[in-house]
């Protein structure tokens, strides 16, 4: 009974690449993986655990989800809706600090991967 968020079983898809959405998610407990799907094949981008968030791009742009998110074990996830988030940022822009920080880590990670990929080519 205790605990916040919504419960998902292992292997459940939270959202799919190409879906539209208007909220971000924060993992309360458990683990998910981010998967890119291309030509019917799946590539795991990263795993995320408690306190990590995903789906944040939907808060800033109207594009579709860029990856599929699937649980790897029973997981509890809290959703953050756009209205609450943007309302919060309006009053206190520093609320976005952690998201910007994480997005910056992700860009760095992707840049490293791209560089490695270019070297291997």
């Amino acid at each position: 009974m205790a605990g916040l968020g919504k419960e998902y079983k292992s292997g459940e898809v939270i959202f799919r690449q190409g879906d539209t959405g208007s909220c971000m998610f924060v993992i309360q407990d458990g683990e998910v993986e981010a998967i890119a799907e291309s030509d019917g094949r799946e590539f795991r981008l990263r795993r995320m655990g408690p306190n990590d968030f995903f789906g944040e791009m939907a808060l800033f742009e109207k594009e579709t989800r860029t990856a599929t998110i699937r649980t790897t074990k029973p997981t509890r996830i809290l959703s953050i809706d756009k209205k609450n988030f943007l309302g919060g940022i309006h009053e206190d822009p520093s609320l976005a600090f952690r998201i910007v920080q994480t997005m910056s880590h992700r860009i760095r990670d992707l840049t490293d991967r791209l560089a490695r990929y270019e070297q291997q080519k």
Binding site: A2, G3, G5, D29, F53, L78
Partner: peptide
């Protein structure tokens, strides 16, 4: 709204603190 803002800040209320959702 506070639960969501705290989560955005990286403050996750653990199960031992939440008596009931």
């Amino acid at each position: 709204s506070l639960v969501q803002r705290l989560a955005t800040e990286g403050i996750r209320l653990p199960d031992c603190v939440v008596q009931r959702g």
